[in-house]
């Protein structure tokens, strides 16, 4: 399997915050979701991937090459949707198309028009008058019309209502129908991940605490619920996180430990949801509220 994006030991240091080292790859034909709390480093990572920030260590490899000397060419093969500021707000989608066209050798005007029709975009309305969903669809249409192979999207579903969100996600699924393409997007909405992603990466305090194929990740963990006697087991010490609530204990454990814990009848062992993983992982027993 080819990797469109490959991170090796990528590091960026700020006075109060360090991102990385991150090792991660995005294979062709996949959608990868990036989750993390505010300030975990998602936006910094996006900027590093776009070459907007110089890295302090490690390398970003895109389509098997680094940015050095090939930046315009590589960027022409990528599509981005970043958080604000976004495109000039007084232009219409049609004008935006004309604006970006000269930068992309593979720009396909006919495709842009047909995408506009399909998304029911008002092509002659200025950007600032479009709804959030229409804005996001415009940006996606722009990215898809220059035949981007790798889409990097910073919170494309944030602020969208569920209808628009489902449209956007369906569109991402459609993009990766073409096996040569891949999508990396960050989100605050875990159900987005459940709906469309193949791979998930959790960022926390600048480190990637969990990353991998969604199903493997979920298979590797169990959420074990039971009485306080759970904590006596040696396996409890290996739990990645948990909480105690009115005498009930919940632990996030590696799947093999869960079997060791699940002896008495009072114990319940479940496959966690992605939200459970995000919530419990790396959070010791006493730090979580009930």
């Amino acid at each position: 399997m080819t990797h469109l994006l490959d991170l090796r030991g990528l590091t960026k240091r700020f006075p109060a915050f360090t991102l990385g080292p991150l090792d991660f790859a995005v294979p062709a034909g996949s959608i990868t979701g990036l989750v993390g709390a505010n300030g975990a480093g998602k936006s910094t990572l996006m900027k590093l991937l776009l070459g907007l920030l110089p890295a302090d260590g490690g390398a970003v490899t895109l389509f098997g090459r680094t940015y050095t000397g090939a930046e315009p060419e590589l960027k022409a093969r990528m599509g981005f949707v970043l958080d604000p500021p976004g495109p000039p707000r007084h232009l219409t989608p049609l004008e935006l198309g004309t604006l970006v066209k000269p930068f992309y050798p593979r720009w396909d005007a006919a495709r842009f028009r047909s995408l506009g029709q399909r998304f029911e975009l008002p092509m002659k309305t200025t950007f600032q008058k479009l709804s959030q969903g229409e804005r996001m669809k415009t940006l996606l249409a722009l990215a898809l019309s220059h035949d981007a192979e790798l889409l990097l999207l910073d919170e494309p579903t944030s602020g969208l209502d569920p209808l628009a969100r489902r449209d956007v996600l369906d569109l991402l699924l459609e993009v990766v129908q073409d096996e040569g393409r891949a999508v990396l997007f960050s989100t605050h909405i875990v159900s987005d991940l459940e709906r469309v992603t193949d791979q998930v990466a959790f960022l926390k305090d600048g480190r990637m605490i969990l990353a991998g194929a969604k199903d493997d990740l979920l298979d590797a963990w169990r959420l074990v619920k039971g009485g306080p006697e759970l904590l006596d087991s040696p396996a409890a010490a290996r739990a990645a996180g948990g909480r105690r609530c009115e005498g009930r204990v919940e632990l996030l454990c590696p799947a093999e430990d869960a079997r060791a814990l699940a002896t008495p009848e009072a114990v319940l062992s479940e496959r966690p949801t992605l939200e459970d993983l995000a919530f419990f992982h790396g959070r010791p027993l006493e730090t979580l509220p009930c």
Partner: peptide, 13 residues
């Protein structure tokens, strides 16, 4: 909008 999943879950609790 703008609140991460862990924070939201704690908030609901």
């Amino acid at each position: 909008t703008g609140l991460d999943p862990v924070f939201r879950r704690e908030l609901l609790q």
